[in-house]
Design a binder for these strands. Structure first.
Ligand SMILES: [Mn+2]
Ligand SMILES: [Mn+2]
Ligand SMILES: [Mn+2]
Ligand SMILES: [Mn+2]
Lengths: 242, 242
DNA sequence: TAATATAATTAGTCAAGACTAATATTATAT
DNA sequence: ATATAATATTAGTCTTGACTAATTATATTA
């Protein structure tokens, strides 16, 4: 469910042409704020060129953005001049950066992603988290990092879990061991009856992606299975020489 | 760091005017796929009107979207006809819905948000998660829901944590108890020396938002503190009659 | 079957946010 | 102090994905 801002009504006469102030910042504008703030922490003079480089865009785009952000009272900026944040602007930037930080910690320290990917993910998601969700998640990250006990347990389990695939993701000719079967209803029961059990070795005979069914063998039995069903069978691919 | 798609080069002569196929789906297009799939699970005939209603947009927007999705080979659709998903389209929709599901579980069952907010958050974030992050997070949710032991501990701690604020979020006249002080460097040391200790009661005397400093009292001492410092003091507001 | 109501499409507009090309300003080097 | 280089701005274009108004096609009802 989405709320899209109503926009572009040509008959809205109270035009208030500069709708600038007060409407929430778009993800892109938030990134401008965040990155200007970061640049200001490193150098005390920030130029259009610096922002363009950091955000990997061209200078005219930056100029346009700065004009909007100035209208909103978030940056101090005069033509051809240097860029500063207003008090309000700093608040905004800090709020965003805080989300960036705990999200990064979450992806890095809890989910075990490497620094760069973690940062990237964080910098995308930060613009879409409600403040309630942010609070809760921030608490959660703090909490989890204190209880290092079982987080160890989790991390070690994660590594092997990441080697797992779904049967439907295997390619023709691949072999794999069944790790577990998702679901709980009659579907799971049927799969068990067909011979899909934990530990069994599967060999994919024929698999045309998107075309049902997949043909496989389990200890010399030939079986056909629909993609949809294969989707809920978790396997661990075997190296070729097994 | 962002990658923006390069766009709008008027001199790109290999125009390939229908750049349609193969470029990744935008968040909005992903929502179309997801919701069409949901509608198809309930009714076996899906009309433009249904999609418009579900997504809370107008019919012409839907028509335009369907034309694009058809170009990309994701929907079966003829003018004035009913809407179906292609095999590829189903795959796409399922992938998105899977993210939607475990994200919802995360916000609901781990962070304790109510169903509706959890769904909303999930449906925003689902479009921005890499497949690696998705995998890890899905594993994490599964793992966490099995170890109900300490998740209990966490949930109960969360409730009280959500009553907490930062000193910088209090309004003039409010009283609060210090819960803890964030950070670790010399800043924290200085705050402790000033008398900010766990359990102390704070009374905010004067606070003009965005204007340093904040004036407060701790057991009859008057103190001034900068917003930035107040930001790292976690407090629990007291009811008026305390 | 004809008249009406509902549903869907087209045409044209708008805002955001990127881009290029051309121009203007400021900084640096001779 | 001037010439050149580096930066920044304007003007105009493009795509995406909304919107309204007008038109066309399909369904329903008399
Ligand atoms: Mn970001
Ligand atoms: Mn960020
Ligand atoms: Mn969504
Ligand atoms: Mn969703």
């Amino acid at each position: 469910m989405r709320m899209r801002r109503r926009q572009g009504n040509p008959f809205n006469v109270n035009a208030n042409s500069s709708t600038s102030i007060d409407t929430p910042l778009s993800p892109n504008m938030e990134d401008y704020m965040e990155n200007i703030s970061m640049l200001l922490k490193e150098h005390d003079v920030v130029r259009v060129k610096d922002i363009a480089k950091k955000l990997n865009i061209k200078m005219p785009s930056v100029t346009a953005a700065l004009q909007k952000l100035k209208d909103k009272g978030l940056v101090d900026y005069e033509k051809y001049g240097h860029v500063q944040l207003t008090a309000k602007g700093k608040e905004v930037a800090d709020t965003i950066y805080e989300k960036h930080s705990f999200l990064t910690e979450f992806f890095k320290d809890i989910l075990g992603m490497d620094t760069q990917e973690a940062e990237q993910q964080a910098c995308k998601l930060e613009h879409h988290l409600s403040s309630d969700a942010s609070n809760r998640m921030q608490r959660f990250v703090e909490f989890y990092k204190q209880e290092q006990l079982d987080s160890q347990q989790w991390i070690s389990r994660l590594d092997s879990a990441l080697e797992e695939k779904r049967l439907s993701d295997l390619k023709e000719g691949e072999k794999a061991e069944i790790v577990r079967i998702l679901g709980s209803g009659p579907l799971k029961k049927r799969l068990l009856e067909m011979g899909f059990r934990k530990g069994e070795i599967i060999h994919v005979i024929k698999y045309a992606p998107l075309k049902d069914p997949i043909e496989i063998s389990i200890k010399d039995f030939l079986l056909s299975i629909r993609v949809e069903e294969a989707h809920s069978i978790i396997v661990k691919p075997l190296k070729n020489h097994d």
